[in-house]
């Protein structure tokens, strides 16, 4: 396990360590389909994809969400908490594409005694296309502070 990152170490503009997912082959796509039990043709049936005007099998979006989540949870370590992650699927990725997740800190603030960090995150492929931009909020422990909770109250107005 890497050393724990603390709230005090983080400043706006900081680039966090990227997550190099590497080349994603069809085998990885199928394995992901299996893990999430998604059996849609778009994500596994090459013939169907060609017949429907796609150039190849299309990655399912959550592969990219997972890249972002892995990058963030690797960075925040055992002591941090991934509070929010939102992303958009802007482009298609195909078997053989290389995915890299990157993130930059946009805001740091304290709330209820905890250290919050907002980030801009994105997944970029080997063509330089940003196929999955998004934003995230993580909570980091403060030096000599109490541990970050792992249970949070549901905000007023949020539907259960």
């Amino acid at each position: 396990m890497t050393e724990q990152v603390y709230f005090e170490d983080v400043k706006e503009g900081l680039e966090i360590p990227p997550f190099e997912r590497g080349v994603v082959q069809m085998r990885d796509v199928i394995r992901f389909d299996a893990a999430v039990e998604n059996y849609e043709r778009l994500h596994q049936d090459y013939k169907w994809c060609l017949e429907n005007g796609y150039p190849d099998v299309i990655f399912n979006g959550p592969i990219k969400n997972a890249c972002l989540a892995t990058m963030l949870t690797n960075w925040i370590g055992d002591g941090g908490w991934l509070k929010k992650l939102g992303c958009q699927h802007r482009g298609m990725d195909l078997p053989g594409n290389t995915l890299t997740a990157t993130g930059v800190v946009t805001k740091t603030y304290e709330q209820d005694g905890m250290g919050f960090v907002d980030l801009d995150v994105k997944v970029t492929n080997q063509l330089g296309e940003v196929t999955c931009p998004g934003t995230a909020t993580v909570i980091l422990p403060k030096r000599d502070g109490v541990p970050v909770p792992t249970v949070f109250p549901v905000p007023a107005g949020a539907s259960a």
């Binding site: 069809m26 199928i30 394995r31 059996y39 596994q44 049936d45 090459y46 190849d56 078997p95």
Partner: peptide, 25 residues
């Protein structure tokens, strides 16, 4: 037997060979 049947089977069987999943290959 559809591609989805094969992928579902590969998932249960835990083998992900391209020969049994990817028409292009």
């Amino acid at each position: 037997v559809e591609s989805t049947d094969l992928v579902r089977f590969c998932s249960a069987w835990e083998t992900y060979s391209l020969l049994h999943t990817y028409q292009k290959f």
